[in-house]
Amino acid sequence: MEETNETSFYQEYEVFSKKSVKAPIQHQFSLLAPNEEMALSMAMENFMRREDVLDVWVVKRDNIRAMTSEERMNWTKRLDNKDYRRTKGTVI
């Protein structure tokens, strides 16, 4: 069972961090770790060696519902008909 044991050691986590009090939390990168605690300490090792950091989040990749490639393709293209949302040219 050695084989199975070792493979499940590597879980995918996405790492987010916050640089300053005014900055939003930002995606950094991903890493492999066996649990949240190790993911957090590896995030510090891997990504925060030099820069300022106020907070770090690690999120299991499976728990993120991101858009699929197709959804990105179809949902993120803006049609040129959103002027009314921007109050552009509105006479006040």
Binding site: T4, N5, E6, T7, F9, P34, N35
Partner: peptide
């Protein structure tokens, strides 16, 4: 480090 990978695997920890 194999023992670390085994000791912290899901199967060993049961999570």
């Amino acid at each position: 480090n194999r023992w670390v990978r085994q000791a912290l695997s899901k199967e060993a920890i049961g999570s």
